[in-house]
Amino acid sequence: MPVTRLGAHTYGIEGVSLTSSAAVVGPKEGEGPLGSEFDQVWNDDRHGEGTFEKAERALLVASQNLALQKAAWSWRSVDLVLGGDLLDQIVSTDFAARTHGRPLLGLFAACAVFTEALGLAALLVAGQGFRRVMVSAVSHHFTAERQFRFPIELGTQRPPTAAWTATAAGTVLVTVEDGPLVVDSVTFGRVLDWAGKDPNDMGGAMAPAAIDTISRHLSDTGRSPSAYDAIYTGDLGNFGLQMAQVLAEQQGLDLTPGLKDCGLALYDRKRQDVHNGGSGPGCAAAVFSGPLVRRLTSGRLQRILLVATGALFSPTTYQQGETIPCVAHAVSVRRFAREERAVLS
């Protein structure tokens, strides 16, 4: 059976591969420690587009086209596109769909949208209806600044817990055909609100949701954290990761060899002035679709749990003094070992 219910929140999946992926990032992300592991690095944030909103869309389309190219798929062979972004009415994802003309399910889960889409895609493909599904997510630093914070040139001082929205896009292709990686289980998260109010500290607000999803995933699958070479959260950043570790300890959850975070890995915090680290839907999407997929494919990593985290607030809700609800969705991805392939064929 391709989909098995493993617990209240987790589904085991068989026969679903990731056949190719692509990550395209902005200049700052290219200068970070992972810079050489992305498929394309833009020289400037605008990339010749008239507005940053158009640039964000172009970033998304570039990662989608590149992923297709690498798999030698045509757009016409894609059954469904799943994905999302941060902008109001998810315009990047929606507008990009005007040109590709494939059926689209636009999703919103703030920065957690990549694993929401990946998990859904894996279930849909395992359900044996869809054969080729594209999953993507994108964010752009300057469009997010405008929507959630201040005009770019306005002089402001950011607190140490503020996150830096990444200019990044990631796309993966999910299929029934053989691929170098497989999705083996998916855990969708509950929305938790632990009364975090500060939009400049999303890491602290999201940490409880991340630990909730991770602990549910582990108990549903009966795995210990050591079953993974790494557990990557999406964008908790420096402080959020610290809080997640404290929470795990409090709950008696031993996460050795320890948590890692895509947002923290994306930049050099000392050199790049990003305060808490990277964030945004494109952050987890690009770090996974570029560096992590490469490391899994090469065998440097065997299995990882990707737990993208999202703070589900809008500028209106925080101005009205509301707390920030958060969510985290987890997808377990592992290398499809050569021996397995031999047995199957």
């Binding site: 405008r146 770019i152 040139e153 002089g155 950011r158």
Partner: peptide, 29 residues
């Protein structure tokens, strides 16, 4: 100006130059 204000905070925001910044930044944006 945003680079200056990032370090100088109120030292850059409070003078009249900061007021100019608060008008021009949204106009550009």
């Amino acid at each position: 100006y945003d680079r200056l204000a990032k370090r100088a905070g109120m030292g850059a925001i409070l003078p009249i130059t900061g007021f100019a910044n608060a008008m021009v930044a949204p106009a550009m944006e």
